[in-house]
Design a protein around this nucleic acid. Structure first.
Length: 479
RNA sequence: CGGGGUGUAGCGCAGUGGGCCAGCGCACCGCGUUUGGGACGCGGGGGUCGGCGGUUCAAGUCCGCCCACCCCGACCA
């Protein structure tokens, strides 16, 4: 249950975040360093996220399956870049049944290797392709500094792993998924994202192309909200994933993998949260509207509760995720703050005056104070609530987009870039060299985030070295 | 791993020139009054004082070692 106030975001954003996660009842610290317990409210939110994505993947022909948590250590050594990328963060099981194991087992940090191994066994012919499998589960990476949802040792996600006959098919798959992720962010999470390609430095270990969607948090830092990778034949060659084509020639497959993790919950918090607490988009909120009955004595209580129960039943029947807060041990004022902390988008208050007038009071979470309140008739409330929820969803996206756009700037020169990235994103020309990228990081702590797919026409001068540049990139400090 | 800090009730803390029963606020339980923006009174329950060892008639308090966690720096979804 929520108690007391949060620090304001301006005072201490990191502390605001930490306390909010706990007070909004999303998660708690686990006894194991870096691990979190996702509480029922947080998990309900995650389920709303996963169920939308699951549906979208199934609509595009993907199927779910499960692969083991433990992976033979030797599998990681088969792909050079992959092992280099992941070895520092592996958790390794050395004993089982009281005996030292012949070969250590790795707790999966991601499943390319074991899935590649299985694909090699399953794929024989061009007729077997494409293979479009999604695994829902958790993975473990030994992180140095952790933060609930944003970076925990164990986190939850889906990982899609696909195998294709041709480069075109695999690339198309990578972009198809990126589009699904983008759609999810805009339509469900109300988070505007920029879709693009990662630089070589920022690429996934073992990938040929890494694409991502990047979002701006309230503190203007960037957060990668989802990734989709094209591996070319890297994993296929490492794991011998081969098929016979129509000409009876042995060919290597082209593979992809892609993921959105429970980190997206961190994005929801940092994009939409305010000094009152969490603010959830109606499409994902476990509780879309909370009903708070108000009364002073038994006579009022019976009249109010009768109306409240009627409204509750009606809205619930209409498919609205509604919660009745009939707790008697706390005051209405406490409940208002409590549900605001938890991010419920819309509150319905009903008291003796409303019973008399056949009305209710509505309070929008996204519009604080009196401005967000309205008094509407009980008649037709379902429609009113549905319209308001849709309006809140739209307005959250609109606000987040306006915020993001007002914090992206075009650097005029290198000094300007350094200034911009202290409190925003810089969108500038980049020659593509690692040296320029490293210099920016060294000088400003900002990294290249995405090379957007939508590029302006023409060419310019690299903002760092001044040589000819054919692409523009976003520079920002990132989570 | 480098630097800084903290371990006393679920949370936040006080108590440390050693001395009777280890305390306060919040939370929790009970009863009553309250209830349209974070209510109040009264009465309760709850502790290996991070761990191990040492000094002492006596250790939360002094000494040694260890452990854990947090914050700040280099990697990641």
């Amino acid at each position: 249950m929520a108690e007391e106030k949060l620090p304001t975001r301006a005072e201490d954003f990191a502390e605001w975040y930490n306390q909010l996660v706990l007070k909004a009842d999303l998660a708690d610290y686990a006894p194991v360093r870096g691990c979190m317990v996702v509480k029922p409210y947080g998990w309900a939110l995650w389920e709303n996220i996963t169920s939308w994505l699951d549906r979208a993947f199934k609509e595009t022909g993907h199927v779910n399956a499960a692969f083991p948590t433990l992976i033979p250590m030797s599998f990681f050594e088969k792909e050079k870049e992959h092992v280099e990328g992941f070895s520092p963060e592996l958790a390794v099981v050395t004993h089982g049944g009281g005996e030292k194991l012949e070969e250590p087992l790795v707790v999966r940090p991601t499943s390319e290797t074991i899935i590649g191994h299985m694909y090699a066994k399953w794929i024989k012919s061009w007729r077997d392709l494409p293979v479009l499998i999604v695994q829902w589960g958790s993975v473990l990476r030994w992180e140095m500094r952790t933060k609930l949802f944003l970076r925990t040792a164990e986190f939850y996600w889906h990982e899609g792993h696909t195998a294709h006959a041709t480069t075109e098919d695999a690339m198309e798959e990578m972009y198809r998924i990126l589009d699904i992720y983008e759609k999810f962010c805009y339509e469900q999470a109300a988070i505007p994202v920029i879709k693009g390609t990662k630089s070589e430095t920022e690429r996934f270990a073992g990938a040929q192309i890494t694409t991502a969607i990047e979002a701006m948090m309230w503190d203007k830092r960037a957060l990668q909200a989802g990734t989709s990778h094209y591996f070319g034949q890297n994993f296929a060659r490492a794991f011998d994933i081969q098929y016979l084509d129509q000409n009876n020639t042995l060919q290597y497959c082209e593979t992809t993998s892609w993921a959105i993790s429970s980190r997206i919950i961190g994005a929801l918090i940092m994009v939409h949260g305010d000094d009152q607490g969490l603010q959830l988009p109606p499409n994902l909120a476990p509780i879309q509207t909370v009903l708070v009955p108000i009364y002073k004595n038994d006579a009022e209580k019976s009249a109010v509760m009768e109306a409240a129960n009627r409204i509750f039943t009606e809205l619930k029947a209409a498919g609205i995720r509604i919660k009745m807060d009939a707790r008697e041990e706390v005051t209405p004022g406490f409940k208002f703050n409590d549900w605001e902390m938890r991010g419920v988008p819309l509150r319905i208050e009903i008291g003796p005056k409303d019973v008399e007038k056949g009305s209710v009071a509505l309070a929008r979470r996204d519009v604080p104070g009196r401005d967000g309140k309205s008094f509407v008739p009980q008649a037709g409330l379902t429609g009113t609530v549905e319209r308001l929820l849709a309006d809140i969803q739209a307005s959250m996206l609109k606000n987040a987009t306006a915020f993001r756009d007002s914090n992206i700037h075009e650097p005029q020169d290198y000094a300007h870039l350094a200034e911009i990235v202290q409190n925003g994103w810089a969108f500038g020309w980049w020659c593509g060299s690692k040296e320029c990228e490293a210099k920016v990081k060294e000088d400003t702590k900002a990294t290249t985030r995405v090379i957007p797919l939508n590029q302006p026409a023409g060419k310019g001068k690299c903002i760092v070295c001044g040589s000819e540049a054919h692409q523009k990139v976003y520079f920002a400090r990132a989570y």
